[in-house]
Structure formats: C-alpha cells, structure tokens
Computed example of a mutant assay.
Amino acid sequence: MTNKSDWPAAPGTLAHRMVQGASFVLVGVLCLLSLSAGLLPGLLAVCVSFLLTRALTRVPLAARHAGSSGLPPWLAATLVIVAPLAGLVALMLNAKGYSLLAVQQYQELLNHLANTILEMRERLPPEIVRHLPEGVAGVQELVATHLRAQASHLATVGRTWLHGLLLAYVGLIVGALLATRRPPAQRRPLSAAIATRAAHFIDAFRQIVAAQFWIATFNAVLTALFVLALLPAFGVAMPYDYALVGMTFVFGLVPIVGNLVVNVVMTLVGVSVSVFVGVGCLAFLIGIHKAEYFINARVVGARTSTGVWELLAVMFAAETLFGVPGLVAAPLYYAYAKKELAAAGLV
C-alpha cells in the first residue's frame, strides 16, 4: 500500500502516473466543454484577467517573492474587475450622443446608397433595373424587409453576444481572484498536478497573445497602405481613414472575431463612398482574412516551436468541427499541448 507522503516524491510510480493522467483528463474536459458549451469567452477572460492582475502586481508566474513591487494584490484585482464596468458606465452616459451620431451617419449612408442606385438605373439594362429599389424610400423598404426576415436570427445573435459578454466578465472576476490567491504551503498530489497544467496553459496563452500583437500590427500596416496609399492613388478619399487603421489594430488583437468586426465596418464605410469602393474593400479584407491563416500559423509557430503546416491543419480541423470558436481556440490549445509534450520530454 502506498503511503500518502510518498506520492509527490515518486514520479515513476503507478500512483503518480494516475494523478498526472487525472489532471490531463480534467484539463481536456475543460477545453472541450469551453468549445461545445460556449464557455470559450469565459476561459479566455480568465487568462487575460490573471495575466493583467499579475502584471499590475509584477508577480512572476512561478512564485510570489518578498521583493516584488507594484500594486497591492487586492487593488490590482479591483482595478481589473471594476475597469470594464467603469467603461460601460461611461459608454451609457454618452449613449444619447452616440445614438444621434449613428442615426445621422445612417441617413447619410442611406442617401449615398440611394443616389448610387439611381445612377446605376440609368446605365443598366431594363431587366436588371426593375429589380432595383427606387430612391431613398425604396432602399429603406429593402432594408426593413431584410431586417424583418432576419429578426429571429438577429435576436439569437444578440442573446449569444450578451451571454458571451456575461461569461467574459465572470471570467475576469475569476481570473483576478485566482491571481491574488495565496498558494498553500503544500499542495496535495492532484492539486499540484492541476496547478502545473494551469501554469503551462497560462504560459501558452501568453505566447499566443504576444503573437496576436504582431498579427494585429501586420493587419494595421496593410490597412494603412490600402486606405492611405492605394485608394488615394486612384483618386478615392476614404472617410475616417486614420480611425479605420487604429480600429484595425485594436480589434485585431482579438483573434478572428475582431477581424470580422473590422470587415463589416470597413465595407460599410467603403460603400458610403461608392459601391465599387465597398466591393474593393470587401475583396481586400477577404484577402487579408485568407492570408491570416498563414500569417497566424507562421507567427504563432515561431513562438511556440510549431510548424506552419501543423497549425494550419489544426486550425482548419477546429473550424470544421467547432466553427469560429474552434478557429479562435485552435492555436492556444495546440500550443498548450506542445508545451505539455515538451515538458514530458516527448517532443
């Protein structure tokens, strides 16, 4: 019979292998649940909050030491938890102004679309013209009809986003509390194994975030060249050009989803100039989106010692099985798996 005190000191025993296996099973179940049950925003938020809180307290991931400087842990956790609420309050205080601006921009965009369609009606064949709306009223009716047809889908999307935001905020709270939790003097075997798995996962997440920074920079540089150099060379002045470049970088820090948001906004701004500019923006963004598979794989692979073909295969497979969440999680999960294999001396 194995003595309890012998467990941590016997890495080659059956008991030790069972404990390690149990910790890997628990982590694997958590990763699969985050994808299948829609918990990925919460899991990513836990990692972000943990790293932010530790950065504010300047505490290394391995252990807390007496000479560490920075904010007190309770203050760092409070800032991480309260900052999103403060931002939401500030946004709500200015909601009226933003709403009026949005209505004004919508009306300007609508008028521009209507004028563009009226010009197209004069040049296109009659067979196509009869399918186009007439003037502003026709465009408004077309938009309203589409929104009515998509009402149930939009409601579902809204609930999904709200659920994701709530999960993310709960994850922020959990991550901040974990970062400030004082570790016990001595851990039990399973607890120590899970702590090791968590440290490897956080380290893999940190590497992915650093890689995503360079990917966001790459996207912002390409967008700047397109908006500030290529389009003006053809006599096209893109409104909100510098704001679009800045938004591309900020939203580009969020894998995949951030790029989708930028794609929608930039295409709408392009359409506000002309239909052809909107189509050009959409084609440019589709090209970036497809190229990002390879850029993401190369940058992340360089930081995680992973081949480009490995990450591409994992990303395509994860997107096929789990959709966008799988595509977002694939680099992180694979980097974590490689880190565990490397720690075990298997790769």
Rank of each mutant, 00 (worst) to 15 (best):
L61A: 15
A62H: 13
A62G: 09
A63E: 11
A63T: 10
R64T: 14
H65G: 13
H65A: 10
A66Q: 11
G67M: 09
S68Y: 00
S68H: 02
S68W: 01
S68T: 01
S69Q: 06
G70N: 05
L71H: 08
P72C: 02
P72K: 10
P72H: 11
P73F: 05
P73T: 05
P73Q: 03
W74K: 06
L75C: 08
A76R: 03
A76G: 11
A76S: 14
A77R: 02
A77Q: 06
V80L: 08
V82E: 12
P84D: 04
P84L: 07
P84K: 02
P84R: 01
L85A: 09
L85K: 01
L88P: 00
L88M: 03
V89Y: 09
V89Q: 05
A90S: 14
M92T: 03
M92N: 00
M92C: 04
M92K: 00
L93S: 11
L93Y: 08
N94R: 01
K96F: 15
K96D: 15
G97F: 12
Y98W: 09
S99Q: 03
L101K: 06
V103T: 09
Q104P: 07
Q104L: 15
Q105K: 00
Y106D: 02
Q107H: 08
E108K: 09
L109R: 11
L109E: 12
L109A: 13
L113G: 14
A114V: 02
N115Y: 14
N115H: 15
T116H: 03
E119I: 03
M120N: 01
M120Q: 07
R121A: 06
E122P: 00
R123T: 15
R123A: 13
L124A: 12
P125F: 11
P125T: 07
E127K: 05
I128W: 14
L132N: 04
L132Y: 02
P133I: 05
P133M: 07
P133K: 05
E134W: 00
V136Y: 01
V139G: 07
Q140R: 10
L142N: 05
A144D: 03
T145P: 00
H146Y: 04
A149T: 10
A151E: 11
A151W: 13
H153N: 15
H153Y: 15
L154V: 09
L154K: 01
A155C: 06
V157F: 11
V157T: 12
V157R: 09
R159L: 12
T160D: 06
T160C: 04
W161S: 07
L162P: 08
H163C: 04
G164V: 06
A168W: 05
V170H: 02
L172Y: 06
L172F: 10
V174G: 00
A176I: 07
L178A: 10
R181S: 14
R182E: 13
